[in-house]
């Protein structure tokens, strides 16, 4: 199908982009990689008045170090994220999860920031950002502000981004110490979104689990942390039994939906199995 007509702006800087958004009228959509927006427009489920295309805003692309953080430009494509040496070194969990997003063609266009701003609970990257305590740098007419991941994801497809604002970069704390990571994704066909997925980062110390961070994909309207499991793992022995025991509480505080692929109770079961597997792998077991 053909999208409904729209006005098109193609800024080359963040300032121009903010200007275009401000002038775009009632219903502005920001086009990052377009790999969700364009299909939705083709299906005429979205018919924005104005589309602001960020593809020429080169300052939004790329990954750099800034002290204890990695800074990922919002327009960095999935393909660039996957092959970035800094991400490989300091946040391999992001690379591992990004590699499972859709397919090669989509990863060539889709962007890190776009995926996060879209905030699809079935998308893979929000749970990863949440697990890694990423921070979201948002630009607006009145300057920039930083929002922690825990506050960024507000509801289904809804973030802390206000009207007229733009996600410009994501800051991910470098993990130091003996961290292991795993993204455990469960879906029926390769190309599909996660039915449930679990992002785990585990720090081991002297045969124990010192710290575990667990992000859950598609277990509610927003990505979630498996707080109860994280608490149970802190200081636990790095054994299959201890991990299995902790994983039993992975569904606590979740509110998964029911759809073709899984009803809520099955998702609650799956998340326990996947948490056990993800944590075990991250702990090197």
């Amino acid at each position: 199908m053909i999208p409904a007509p729209f006005a098109y702006a193609r800024p080359t800087t963040v300032d121009e982009a903010l200007q275009a958004i401000a002038e775009g009228g009632e219903d502005v959509k920001i086009l990052a990689g377009g790999q969700s927006l364009i299909p939705v427009m083709r299906l005429r489920l979205a018919a924005p008045e104005t589309v602001v295309d960020l593809s020429k805003v080169s300052e939004l692309r790329g990954v750099r170090e800034d002290g204890d953080s990695l800074v990922i430009g919002a327009m960095t494509t999935h393909a660039d994220v996957v092959r970035d040496p800094l991400i490989q070194q300091y946040a391999p969990l992001i690379a591992e999860a990004t590699e499972t997003v859709a397919d090669r063609q989509v990863r060539h266009r889709g962007t890190f920031g776009g995926a996060l701003a879209h905030a699809d609970p079935a998308g893979d990257l929000p749970a990863v950002a949440l697990a890694l305590d990423a921070e979201f740098v948002i630009a607006g007419q009145n300057g920039r502000r930083t929002v922690p991941a825990a506050d960024f994801f507000v509801d289904y497809l809804t973030t802390a981004l206000e009207e007229g604002e733009l996600l410009v970069e994501i800051r991910v704390p470098k993990l130091t110490g003996q961290w292991g990571m795993r993204y455990e994704k469960f879906n029926r066909v390769a190309q599909a979104w996660s039915i449930v997925a679990v992002a785990a980062a585990v720090r081991r110390e002297d045969g124990h689990i010192a710290e575990a961070r667990i992000g859950l994909t598609n277990m509610g309207p927003t990505p979630l942390r498996a707080r109860a499991t994280e608490a149970a793992l802190a200081g636990a022995a790095a054994t299959p039994e201890a991990i299995a025991e902790a994983a039993r509480s992975a569904a606590e505080g979740t509110s998964p939906s029911s759809d073709l692929n899984a009803q809520a109770d099955y998702r609650e079961h799956l998340v326990q199995v996947l948490t056990r597997r993800a944590v075990s792998a991250a702990a090197g077991l």
Partner: peptide, 19 residues
Amino acid sequence: CTVHLDGESVKSCTVFAVQ
């Protein structure tokens, strides 16, 4: 609809011509 855009495969139904 896969084509190469600046040498990388993309789905040309999910890219606007203006892009």
